[in-house]
Design a protein around this nucleic acid. Sequence first.
DNA 1: GTGGATGAG
DNA 2: CGCTCATCCAC
Length: 694
Amino acid sequence: MSSSQPFLASSPISPATAGRRRKSRFTYKHLAQLALSSTTCPLRVIAHIDLDAFYAQCEGVRLGIPEEQPLAVQQWQGLIAINYPARKFGLNRHVTITEARKLCPDLIMQHVATWKEGDEKWAYHRDAFAHIATHKVSLDPYRLESRRILACIKDVLPAPPLQRVEKASVDEVFLDLSAQIHSILLERYPEISGPAPYDDPTEFLTRPPTSALDWDTDALVDLDLSETEDDDPDWDDIAMLLGSEIVRSVRAAIRERLKYTCSAGIARNKMIAKLGSAHKKPNQQTIVRNRAVQQFMDAFKFTRIRNLGGKLGDEVVNKFGTDQVKELLAAPVEQLKAKLGDDTGTWVYHIIRGEDSSEVNARTQIKSMLSAKSFRPTINTSEQAVRWLRIFVADIQSRLVEERVLENKRRPKVLSLHHRQGAQMRSRQASIPSGRPIDEDLLFDIAKHLLGQIIIDGRAWPCSNLQLSVGGFEDGPTGNRGIGSFLVRAERAKAMIPSIRDADGYEWSKVNDQPDKRRKLDHGAIQDYFSGQESQEEQHSDAANVDNADPEAVSLSPPDTSSAKRDGDEDDEVITLDETAGKSAGSLCQQAPITTYEYFCDACRKRFPTVAKEEHEDWHLARELQAKEKSICRSEPGSDRDPHGSAWSSGSVKRSTVPRAGNSNSNSNSNSTTTTQKKMEKMEKGQSRLAFGN
DNA sequence: GTGGATGAG
DNA sequence: CGCTCATCCAC
């Protein structure tokens, strides 16, 4: 119904010749894993989208500057973003503004917005550098644009859980396209949509129709040893191609609706997708097919890989005398483990082979918020510092307002103040009392108190940097809305009626200490729930009434065989719910405690699993914002105006817990890091050799 | 929980 | 560079 799939119409693959000369390398089980966005599925498709010179584009769009015009974003004396036309003149981030002007006399340098003491809002000020002593930078305009873009992306993609979007930074997102692609595959290729022969999920699929794949497009298929290769496409190639179609449509929407260009990478995991998006930069997308992965990686310095860009990367370079992936490939895993520690060594071994099973985290709520200032001439009195605290508080408060107004009433629990004196960094934090609303005075008082503490136990002056931050966000006390309180209620339900536990595959006991696993389970459950419910129309008007379970609703769930039918047995990698799913969905609607599983979306007039609530509501918010978008005229090029669009939640960056070196430099404490170990285990077990080309 | 360190953009 | 944000870990 409302889950739009715009790409079904234009298949680049001609189904004409249905070649079935051989079997696919993939099985029905792999296909089922795809529907679940399993991180070990060899058919998985991940995209990384990266806005081109984002800050510069923001200013260009805001000011209505022609795209070919060289443009840079200035922050005090430096340039923090340079658009592509300007880069042709050899400009980079480290040139000063005078050097820049010399290299490119035509360059426009727009200074970022700033806050001024006493102001209620940031603004674009002329001659900002003159005010460095009294203003602080504000990146709010870019956060706001980032939100609009994220909303646009969420709008063009189908509703969750087919959609999975992770905001990775202000100008980057990851998409897990697996589930969506799965649904497209089933529709386009009925021959694989049926049950497996003999109901055996280990049966291989038939080959896809073997006409020439139209890898065409500006989207680039990349790096292919071609010649010697088996040119027959398999389902992973089809999946990538569909992924590329989706990404192209996402980029087109961003371009048309918001005027931004971006680059993208499409590949089998996050790491490669990200390398892919950086491969051809402005306004292009790159597909890295599975069979091209190693070749693609070979060309890189491994220091380009995430988590290897810092000290860990240096350490590896020093210990192995190279920074090339190609050369490090020769190092046996034992040697890597010996020199880097078991966990890090194993991780490096896999990552340079293109293996990365980190998941795309579907959440986008902010976890902390920070306002900071480096003092060019240092400051020397607490009076000065206090004045800056006031500004920080105003900044943070205004951002909190945006967050909370349109979001699920979350509020920060702790306030912390960091202080730097020379090389010395110190910080103190305090909890924000709950109960009363947060306002500037409250935050300001706490901040002053923290400053007092810092000043007391240490020589504080001269101070070269101050940062005030809030964190420990949690759902507001009023909100029965939100995961947090859901968990509380769920725990209570569990204690009272243990028998309902596990009926549907949830592991209640691990909810609190194992967020990652929890997340994974959630998705399997959600997936099945949705597919089982598909065409149900219900007419509750209030989520609170669900426990009155109208008997009619019980019939909601003949689990849709197309996607919910999964084998169970041996492999615990697959989330298997098969018949249990049907049963539990039924029982969900009969017993009182189920309320904790569900909420009712008024807009959709449907029930959804509570675990999907945040995501679902987020999606609605995105759509609302999009609707508004369409009727908004952009603000005029004037330079002293705030371009304040409506704010929408967004925000958080749920970074995957990635194996970083547990040991770090001084390899004294080279133990610990169990998360790495888990990752490795998962990887070894799941990552199929099928993932590689022949 | 707190404060420092690291890594990312 | 300057400003954010996130995660991990020893304490």
